[in-house]
Design a protein around this nucleic acid. Structure first.
Lengths: 196, 196, 196, 196
DNA sequence: GATGAATGAGAGTTCATTCAT
DNA sequence: CATGAATGAACTCTCATTCAT
């Protein structure tokens, strides 16, 4: 089979997905017109339908795309030197960089997942995967003595992910990233330092 | 008294708002038809337009409604006995009870606020108010010696609110409330206990 | 039967009709809401339906009303002294005064008559009646020697009525009444004077 | 060339305008459904919206269309041989032919102009232009000795235009064109002949 | 493959009309 | 008699989707 064609197709698909992410992030799923996405690419509406059989389909492709990317990149976020405090900052930046502009689409995805079981399942699985990862990091921090032995690593991992997600919501409300990062770091430091 | 503000009208308005919250939460703003909301109440489409001049208007009314409610009830969330651990659980339950079913609408509001500056401003202000409150609580915990004196109360407050918001996102993805609560409590306990 | 009531009813009907004329003149039949008419009278929508069984019915009542009025008042418009020129001006003013504000409703009536045969017939008959009248006036002017014996009185009457109607259209386009009156007078004078 | 102005698009636009003129003439602006217009052309509702962004917009386009046409053709109406009587008849026919079926839409335009200042201005300007033209014709008739030197050409021109408009109203009431034309001719002849 | 004109189901909104009070 | 809340048919306009070119 013509590999070139299929490679080309994959490229165009990728391009469309990126344009769609931008559009959905800006206007939301329902309010984004297929034509908007097409225009971003200098394509015509019809062309998108050569690559995705419906708007829904395109959205789901975005979801998968986002998740794969998360998959690919969620390594190496946590393990760093032993200065947790400055480490925390780094971690925040890393996640931020990775999610670059996906906040809003993620929001759309969460909202949509309430209606779309398939999507919900996929996001749940992504969550589990991320959680697994963070939990490992937490565990090593426990091992390294930065956290008490009796801390429930699983729960703390969930909390950390939630914290990050909550800060993403903040960003959408216009709260500056500096403020958010500081909140993140403060929380991490407080966890480590405790009240002692 | 102006007719529009008559007791009866206000009651119906309230009923419509509640039905709309349920509908928007279930289906999202764009996908909810005015008729859906009407049907929930055994009313007809047209009736809603006697009380709200547009779908947008109804949504904004919900936003205000939510915010007023938050305003009214944001007292007494934090101050409790001196066992922070069990206290934390209580706090979580309190917020949960107050927000009862508003999670999804809040999400819609966040998404919408990206497009609606007025709404964005209102939500930002709400955020500030809540933050103020939480910060006071954090400060008293510091004073009471549960947290170190050098903790940045403002940042920690932001983090706590974000944590709560992130857990709300979790809930929407189908993560059980028990798990979320445990994550919350764990985080609080860790903060208090530290690594000592 | 209670005459008082029926008299009262007739009065209210009359009031509603007058309000409707104003409304229809201002906004046009289709764009006028029953509520607009009601508000003008400090009545409620429902009340109008106690007197007229539908909007259409109300409109038809207006038509009849207008025509009856025309009937009642179309005497004495033309016969005057023998100075036709100044006479013409007087005539114009007379018709103007009588039609006071009815121009637009008349327009609506003409437009509507294209769709409503009953109305069309009624208006046609009104036209015939007016024409009859004007023709008599023209004839006496001929007899009095102001116009040539060989003038077709019927046709000239039609032309005069049309001229007046055309000036009504002018008025609606914002052409000042002074200009219109002058046009009317000039035409009449020219007719009388000829090219001699 | 911009797409919107491409030959094809312009043609379709023109077709829609013609269909809309017919529809508006038959049913009036408010009572004409966009679908009616579409059906006349074997098109679907939506298609019209590819060419006109609203019903209002389509109507305004018709107005402009009518005016441009009037503009283009208002020459050569008056100058003819020296037999004014038979000339008059010719003139009437010429205008009639030009306005072909526009009477009703013109009526709608007049009615609408009462609410739409932009339209009102446009129609006023058209009126001025037509008036200018007719006035020139009147002046040459004066020069040629068909009318007295002391006639106010401007006013007479206004009257003639009004006369024509009034006859258009007649037509809408079902008065035969023969009768109208005779009225027109009679008036012209009377003007020329006078009472001498 | 790509296009964009055409489609038509579907949603928001209006308002004449009804009827319980 | 009068009211005005409620109704729902009807209309405008949108936009995902299709398909002839």
């Amino acid at each position: 089979m013509p590999k070139v064609t299929s490679m080309y197709k994959a490229e165009v698909k990728e391009k469309i997905i990126r344009a769609a992410i931008d559009s959905f992030a800006q206007t939301g799923f329902d309010r984004t017109k297929m034509e908007d996405i097409a225009k971003r690419l200098g394509l015509s509406k019809g062309t998108i339908y050569l690559y995705f059989k419906s708007k829904e389909d395109l959205f789901l492709a975005i979801c998968e795309h986002n998740m794969q990317q998360s998959d690919r990149e969620d390594a190496g976020l946590f393990v760093r030197k032993d200065n947790i405090a400055s480490d925390a900052e780094q971690i925040y930046d890393n996640i931020r960089r990775r999610e670059q502009g996906n906040d809003r689409v993620m929001l759309e995805m969460v909202a949509e997942s309430a209606r779309n079981p398939k999507l919900k399942k996929a996001m749940y699985e992504l969550h589990v995967k991320v959680h697994e990862h963070v939990m490992q990091a937490v565990k090593s921090k426990i091992d390294e003595g930065f956290l008490r032995k009796d801390v429930d690593a699983a729960s703390l991992a969930i909390a950390l992910v939630a914290l990050y997600d909550g800060l993403a919501v903040n960003r959408m409300l216009g709260i500056s990233d500096a403020v958010n990062k500081k909140a993140w770091v403060t929380m991490i430091k407080t966890m480590i330092a405790g009240s002692s």
